[in-house]
């Protein structure tokens, strides 16, 4: 009887100490972590993006009746900022990132939103459809990396597909029904960011230290830059890509 009592006390003490340590360590991390922020620019004028002929599917062409669709290989803002560039830390050895909001890859008006979805290895994401026409969602990774291709139908009203990827890879995604639909799953390790339409990005939750930041663009290639992140501060990294 007494023994059992002792055990309970010891166990609860262990749990309490454990919780305290966890809270403390998180607190320390949050205060000490810095971030990397910057802008990605495109050198020179943005390449002309071809318009997309969606006449084979009246639903799609109607959705773009007033606002014709274009390919999204290069999406550049008025200030020359380059969108859809994935920024991440090369050779990240830290822990997996705590999942932010649920990542969503939406099939909307017969295009992918976002065009590039960045994620950590093992991080789950949702593929959903907002369209009243059937799609199939068909990522095509190289199975030798450990990422296995799959192909799921997404007729109107489909439930979202929830998935994750094992290995780092830039995975092209397409819809075989609408051959113009193409996008990317950018699977990286550690903290990441994707540049917005003005080319701006912020990689959050980076502990102090020296890093190599990699910027990846689906057509313009990759660039790297060394940065030093100080505790609680923002380091800056700016990139300029040339269109290929």
């Amino acid at each position: 009887m007494r023994n059992r009592h002792n055990l309970a006390v010891v166990l609860s003490a262990v749990v309490l100490v454990g919780c305290a340590a966890l809270i403390l360590s998180q607190g320390v991390n949050a205060a000490g972590e810095g971030k990397i922020t910057g802008t990605v620019k495109l050198d020179g004028p943005a390449p002309h993006m071809k318009g997309i002929d969606m006449s084979k599917d009246p639903y799609c062409s109607k959705a773009h009746a007033s606002d014709p669709a274009h390919y999204e290989t290069y999406v550049a803002g008025a200030n020359g900022g380059l969108a859809n560039v994935v920024l991440y830390i090369d050779g990240w050895t830290g822990a997996a990132q705590a999942s932010n909001a649920v990542l969503v890859f939406d099939q909307r008006n017969c295009m992918y939103t976002p065009h590039v979805l960045a994620m950590d290895t093992g991080e789950s994401f949702k593929v959903q459809t907002s369209d009243q026409t059937a799609h199939n969602i068909h990522p095509n990774p190289n199975p030798m990396t450990g990422n296995i291709p799959w192909n799921q139908s997404q007729p109107p009203g489909s439930p979202p597909v929830e998935k994750s990827w094992k290995a780092t890879e830039f995975i092209p995604v397409k819809c075989n029904i609408h051959p113009w639909m193409n996008g990317w799953f950018a699977v990286v390790k550690g903290p990441y960011a994707t540049s917005d339409e003005n080319g701006n990005f912020t990689i959050n939750n980076v502990p102090p230290g020296n890093y190599t930041v990699t910027a990846w663009h689906e057509a313009a290639g990759t660039q790297t830059q060394k940065v030093t992140v100080a505790a609680g501060a923002a380091a800056s990294a700016n990139f300029t890509f040339k269109a290929k």
Partner: peptide
């Protein structure tokens, strides 16, 4: 099941 490696997707969820 769908035919993997081809455009034919799986309809198991739908």
């Amino acid at each position: 099941t769908g035919l993997d490696g081809t455009p034919m997707p799986s309809f198991a969820d739908n």
